[in-house]
Nucleic acid binder design. Sequence first.
DNA 1: TTATAAACGATCAAATACGATCAATAAAGA
DNA 2: TCTTTATTGATCGTATTTGATCGTTTATAA
Lengths: 253, 253
Amino acid sequence: MIKEERFELIRGELAKKGIVDGDELAAFLAVSRATIRRDLDSLEEKGLLKRTHGGAQAVDSEDELPFHSKLSAYMHEKRAIGIAAAAMVKEGAVIGCTGGTTVMSVVKALKGKPITVVTNAINVAMELAPCESAQVIVTGGALRARSYELVGHIADRTLGEFHLDIALLGVDGIDIERGLSTYTIAEAHAAALYMSQAERVWVVADHSKAGKVAPALIAPLSRVHCLITDPGLDPAIRSQLEAAGLEVSIAEM
Amino acid sequence: MIKEERFELIRGELAKKGIVDGDELAAFLAVSRATIRRDLDSLEEKGLLKRTHGGAQAVDSEDELPFHSKLSAYMHEKRAIGIAAAAMVKEGAVIGCTGGTTVMSVVKALKGKPITVVTNAINVAMELAPCESAQVIVTGGALRARSYELVGHIADRTLGEFHLDIALLGVDGIDIERGLSTYTIAEAHAAALYMSQAERVWVVADHSKAGKVAPALIAPLSRVHCLITDPGLDPAIRSQLEAAGLEVSIAEM
DNA sequence: TTATAAACGATCAAATACGATCAATAAAGA
DNA sequence: TCTTTATTGATCGTATTTGATCGTTTATAA
């Protein structure tokens, strides 16, 4: 095992867990703690992580994309949601992923897990491309301008060929009355299709989406099994959602 | 086993794993470590990998970061080829694109043109995603680890639904006798499929690919209409290719 | 606040890989 | 065939990396 190999594995663990422990890394990579410290120093110098006492933590992805950072709202919340949702995924699961920034957070946290991902979002696929542990299926279809989602009959047909354990949906609105919604018809159609193919439906969204209704309706809340969101969720809305039968999971931050 | 054969195998391992270990390579290729070191030195000089202590790692073909640019193999040539090939594309054309760094250069140069692109490479799709002028169709399929290409029956079926004006192929070998070749069977299969759907077949490759034969054969040269390469092409090989009926286009640099 | 345990940085010895050199072998040409 | 050239494997001293051991600093809890 050469140094660069360790670097890659450390980065993988970091992307998966967000924070890593020096002792765990030393055991995992079968090297001494001194070496781990040196490795973490090197990686920090490259700006790929931030040292902490006892280990290291991932740099916020906003640092990775300096010019996009301000555009992305609730960055910190989405990151926490991603880690929480990823922790709920069992090994070997088949997961269908829509596009959207919150889903991307989950996918980043899923790196390194042995799972199968079916997606119509090419940015999701790009994220998992370097990862050998996950099998990735892309639906194909026409690429929506200025988005990263594939739509049309090719996407629909491919999606129909898979059975999913989990449909992982990012939405723009969650409302007691109107259910799930998003901004475009094409995305709503794709989301509905994921739902119909899946055993369980998970929705990931930061708390700002709760109580909102976007133009394109996807499905009522009765079709959703689990919502993973951040601690900012209004307790009143949470009660309503849970009364409607939703399992609400709050990510730790 | 001759030197070039080892080079190909090393590149194959590198493409597969991203990082290779000197000892493993020595055992795998049944040569001494001294030879491996010399091989890695040669390959680094060509910009095909980056030496490290104990082995080597793949150059990051994705990152166009300035300080990585020098490491990318024949980067200057590929840019010139991309511009030249893009200039030959008429508005409204339907182009099928394989993966590979040279094809990516062409795609970058095609930005802004009103065309339709059909591709099984998600990095090609990502490149064109922000672009509103081009219509992009992604074939779908299983994502190959450490590559960005989609393969399998889904990709094949989708490709079969399109008629292409131009098949734009990036290859790893162009040989008078053996024709076009690449490193993996899956890529070769995809390339052959593009050819069968296309009116005209263009091959883009830097001059180092001329005279080379990679493990997986795609098709004989008689099926190719045009080769776009850089001025480094050996005149003798150029004559042979032209004698074989190929239109050889040399990019200005 | 103080005590304790853990992690840190600095340093050194051992292991490993490196580059340079040379002899042996294989391939190409006179 | 003999010579020339290129390539390989082995050897040497050097440089890098690693693991262990110090004393010191930092986090946690009593």
